[in-house]
Amino acid sequence: MKRAQLIGFSVALGAAVLAYYVASSFVRPPPAPVTVEKTVNSTEVLVAASDIPVGQIVNEGSFRWIAWPSEAVSASYVTKQGGGVAMMHNLSGSVARSPMLAGEPITTQKLIKAGQGGVLAAILPQGMRAISTKIKAETAAGSLILPNDHVDVILIRQVRNRSNQEESVADTLFRNVRVMAIGQQIETKEGKKAADGSATTATLELTPRQAEMMALANAMGEITLSLRSVADLSTDPARAGSLNLDKPKNNSVRIVRYGAKSRVYGVN
């Protein structure tokens, strides 16, 4: 082999080796990730195994245990280390007072034992009363009012004017009242856009004083429910409309209509 050919072959071989190393540097796999294990203190907490609607009777299959960060465990949670297994057995057969989502921690405040009251009594807030009134499609927003909606309560009654002729008068009794049930329905079903059209009663959440006045209004005339916007829940917290229920010294109601005071109705 001639010397020139030998030199050319050597140069080509060296260039090939150099190209190989350069190419290898570009396709080199990334370094393997380094896994660092960190120990987190956790506590076994009792949670809902699946969605639990209001009024459902729960059993042990309705619950499961999951690891929960210890610093995030509330005192109201049921924990396995704190005698939770026995507590889970005791809670079996209870009725759900409020809806719970799958994975939500179980608390005794959300459940009530059977025999301690019905479902409606279980979801009724402390100190409040549930009272029903007759409804029909034209007095309940076309049967579009659902449980947990808020309404104004309007009384329509007949009175005699100065000419001794009867006329219809409408008075707003209460504002921003929560509807607890429509007929036997106490919870809105998923995807349901209207209440049962055949329902003839609406159950309202009222204070004891309001419940007395509601009973009186049921005997005085026809009740109409005016549906309120959900935006009013935060902007209008008033529970009583034209009736002042915060003054125990006055047991009568005076209705102001068209700027003139009407007769006084006793509520005792």
Rank of each mutant, 00 (worst) to 15 (best):
F9N: 06
V11P: 00
A12E: 04
L13R: 03
A15G: 10
A15R: 01
A19F: 08
V22W: 15
S24E: 15
P30F: 08
P30W: 06
A32W: 04
T35P: 06
T35S: 14
E37H: 10
V45H: 09
S50V: 06
I52T: 04
E60R: 11
G61E: 03
G61I: 00
G61L: 01
P69I: 14
E71C: 04
T79M: 03
G84Y: 08
V85T: 13
S92H: 09
V95A: 15
A96Q: 04
S98K: 11
P105D: 03
T107P: 02
T108L: 13
K110N: 11
K110H: 13
L111N: 04
K113S: 12
Q116E: 15
L120M: 12
A130K: 15
A130I: 09
I131A: 14
S132F: 12
I135N: 04
I135V: 14
A137K: 05
A140N: 11
S143H: 12
R157F: 09
R160V: 12
N161E: 07
R162F: 00
V179P: 08
M180W: 11
I182R: 03
G183Q: 09
E187N: 09
G191I: 09
G191M: 03
K193L: 11
D196Y: 02
T201G: 03
T203H: 06
T203K: 00
L204S: 02
E205A: 00
M214A: 13
N218C: 06
M220I: 07
M220T: 05
I223S: 02
I223A: 04
D232K: 07
T235R: 07
A238C: 02
R239L: 06
N244V: 02
K247A: 10
K249S: 14
N251V: 12
S252I: 01
G259E: 11
N268L: 10
